[in-house]
């Protein structure tokens, strides 16, 4: 088995994850932060697919289905939270929601 695509694919997963992480850290728009979390989840799923492909086992793809389900649930709840924040604060700035009040 030639190792080159496997290592390159793991590297791709790492690069995508780091890009998503950078975006979460530098962005203040809350929708962009949600998109970046999606990128990071996708990169984690890619790493699972690579591992499952390396050992020719279905477990990696099963884990990817779970990650997909989790991402769908997460984005729906996250978008509902964004709608609430926008209605309460009239802005998408994540720093505006830094206080906790009832």
């Amino acid at each position: 088995m030639s190792g080159a695509p496997m290592e390159a694919a793991l590297l791709l997963a790492g690069v995508l994850f780091i890009l998503g992480l950078i975006s979460v850290l530098i962005r203040r728009n809350i929708i962009f932060m949600l998109i970046s979390v999606e990128i990071m989840l996708n990169a984690a799923g890619l790493a699972f697919i690579v591992a499952g492909s390396r050992w020719v086992q279905p477990d990696g793809q099963v884990m990817f289905i779970f990650i997909l389900t989790m991402a769908a649930a997460e984005v729906s709840v996250g978008l509902a939270l964004i709608l609430q924040i926008y209605h309460q604060l009239k802005t998408l700035d994540s720093d505006a929601a830094s206080f906790m009040k009832g």
């Binding site: 694919a9 791709l12 996708n42 890619l46 697919i49 793809q61 997909l68």
Partner: peptide, 19 residues
């Protein structure tokens, strides 16, 4: 497409449909 080349065509379809 990367999933496709890694031998997971069903996951590639799911990626397009859901993500």
């Amino acid at each position: 497409v990367v999933f496709f080349t890694l031998g997971a065509p069903f996951m590639a379809a799911l990626e397009i449909i859901i993500y």
